[in-house]
Nucleic acid binder design. Structure first.
Length: 207
DNA sequence: GCGGGGATGTACT
DNA sequence: GTACATCCCCGCA
């Protein structure tokens, strides 16, 4: 399966859940995706493409499935992947990974931080991977140093759907919509409490 | 372990 | 000038 097929032809919420447990790498370092949020186009009040808003800054959302939307807020970067066909501005924000490959490099990129602090948030994850620019914004995933393993995945014991983080419009339907998906009990989820961490980090045990 | 607040870049009014 | 799909540090427990 290629990226375009994976990121099209089914609802964005379904794609977001299918990303959990897959390996994401950048120049060969990375880990398993454990948390992702869906943003659902023109009707989604919380999305950058709300009401058809479109400019060079958010053009990535309008690209066809499998292209990157990398964007800066304050001094931090966010990693999104566009879904659906061209001109349909839906996408998925990858919020957190469980580090697996190149952990030493990630610790260095995060100036000595270890454990969940390495990657349990979108900007932390980008720092750990060493992404410090929007260079790959609008690129096709297949032509970028980013890689997602579509051939293998680890199965979460349970996927939780919850409201997205950092959405301020508290009175809006969209602020509360359960469009954030994560692996129950995984320590690398944003704001995960220690007591809620589950055996095997929430993955189904494999022989 | 928690809660509050400041730092800070970019796009848009 | 203002609003943000955030992070970190600092108090106080």
């Amino acid at each position: 399966m290629n990226y375009q097929t994976f990121f099209q032809n089914r609802p964005t919420t379904e794609i977001a859940q299918d990303l959990l447990g897959r390996m994401l790498t950048y120049h060969g370092i990375g880990g398993l995706i454990v948390e992702a949020e869906a943003y659902l186009g023109k009707k989604d009040f919380a999305a950058h493409s709300y009401n058809g808003r479109r400019s060079p800054a958010n053009e990535g959302l309008y690209c066809e499935g499998g292209h990157l939307y990398i964007y800066a807020q304050r001094q931090y970067f966010f990693f999104d992947i566009a879904t659906q066909e061209k001109d349909v501005p839906e996408g998925i924000l990858v919020r957190a990974i469980e580090p697996k490959i190149g952990i030493e490099a990630m610790i260095k990129n995060r100036s000595g931080k270890t454990g969940p602090l390495l990657t349990n948030g979108p900007a932390k994850m980008m720092q750990a991977l060493g992404v410090t620019s929007r260079k790959w914004d609008l690129a096709n995933l297949a032509d970028s140093p980013f890689e997602i393993d579509l051939a293998h995945k680890i199965i979460p014991r349970e996927i939780i759907a919850a409201p997205r983080i950092g959405i301020k419009q508290a009175d809006s339907y969209w602020a509360k919509a359960p469009l954030r998906f994560y692996v129950a009990g995984n320590p690398y989820i944003s704001d995960m409490k220690k007591k809620n961490i589950q055996e095997n980090n929430g993955w189904v045990l494999t022989k």
